[in-house]
């Protein structure tokens, strides 16, 4: 009974170390190889990666340069090949991600090369630097490694225009549209209209004064009424009535109400007019006009 009890703490310790087995990496470094005009290859920007903390400064990736990543994956301190070894680039605003599998050797040495043409267009157009994480994990009980290690800033080539990314159609609310009405017709200021209306009205008294100045009068009215009272009253009355019909047409009647009334008034005008105007002619022949 004693030996198992003695074993128990050792077993526990073993189990604990087993549970803490985790993936990690070592010797991580990134370098950006820029291909200049011609064949001269210039290497610059080498940085060592720390699995515990991401690089403080973003790495910039030009349109012709290539980002090279190399590291050694370790399971519990020993170099080993994980099944999942990805470099994941993430756009910080939308959270879109693009995974790049690393090529891993048996001893855990892993490498990847990324240039701008490998990166999806949605990420290329990002305003902020892309967040690059490394994911190392495999089957079994070892805990996986997943942490951001550096940031990549995409340097767009000013000579090449940015290819626009068109968002795919998604069903949802559309922007509101309110019809813009044509402007209402405008009138000049009322004062102006009123002034000209009064000017027009003022011509009527001017006309009457002119006539009176030339000697116009109504002195034969009693004579004419006396000679042909009915026909004169009807004739003048029918002229006034015709104007009234036109007024009614302007205010309320329609054409089919107006036309019969015009016909009736016109007949009356014609019949009474022959008599009344005959009387006027007789006055003229009598030398009274």
């Amino acid at each position: 009974m004693r030996p198992p009890q003695l074993f128990a703490p050792a077993l526990l310790l073993l189990a604990a170390s087993f549970a803490h087995a985790a993936w990690d990496f070592d010797d991580g470094s990134i370098s950006v190889v820029a291909k200049q005009s011609g064949d001269s290859i210039k290497e610059k920007q080498v940085a060592l990666l720390n699995p515990k903390a991401p690089l403080s400064k973003p790495v910039s990736l030009g349109s012709t340069s290539t980002l090279k990543l190399s590291l050694t994956a370790k399971d519990n301190g020993k170099g080993k090949r994980p099944h999942q070894a990805f470099l994941v680039l993430q756009e910080q605003e939308s959270g879109l991600k693009a995974p790049f599998p690393l090529t891993v050797k048996e001893n855990g040495k892993a490498a990847a090369q990324i240039s701008q043409k490998d990166i999806p267009i949605q990420l290329l157009n990002a305003a902020k630097p892309l967040k690059a994480s490394i994911v190392l994990a495999s089957f079994g009980s070892s805990e996986g490694f997943n942490a951001p290690v550096f940031n990549v800033k995409i340097e767009a080539d000013p000579a090449v225009p940015l290819s626009a990314y068109e968002r795919p159609l998604r069903y949802g609310k559309k922007p509101e549209i309110h019809h813009i009405f044509r402007p209402d017709p405008k009138s000049p200021p009322k004062v102006v209209s009123l002034f000209f209306a009064l000017a027009v009205v003022a011509t009527l008294p001017a006309l009457f004064i002119g006539w009176i100045f030339l000697g116009a009068n109504l002195n034969h009215l009693s004579k004419a009424i006396g000679a042909a009272p009915l026909s004169h009253a009807t004739f003048f009355g029918s002229i006034v009535a015709m104007e009234f019909v036109f007024f009614m047409y302007y205010t309320s009647w329609n054409l089919f109400q107006t036309l019969p009334v015009i016909g009736a008034v016109a007949v009356i005008t014609l019949l009474s007019g022959t008599k009344a105007l005959g009387e006027v002619q007789r006055r003229r022949l009598a030398g009274e006009r």
């Binding site: 009457f208 006539w211 003048f236």
Partner: peptide, 30 residues
Amino acid sequence: SGAWPWIAGIGVTVAGWLAFCAVWMYSAPP
């Protein structure tokens, strides 16, 4: 309001026409 001068013109024409008819028929020679 922009139509007021034109409406006034029609009114003045009607009144002038009626006055002309009366003067033409009932005016004694001056």
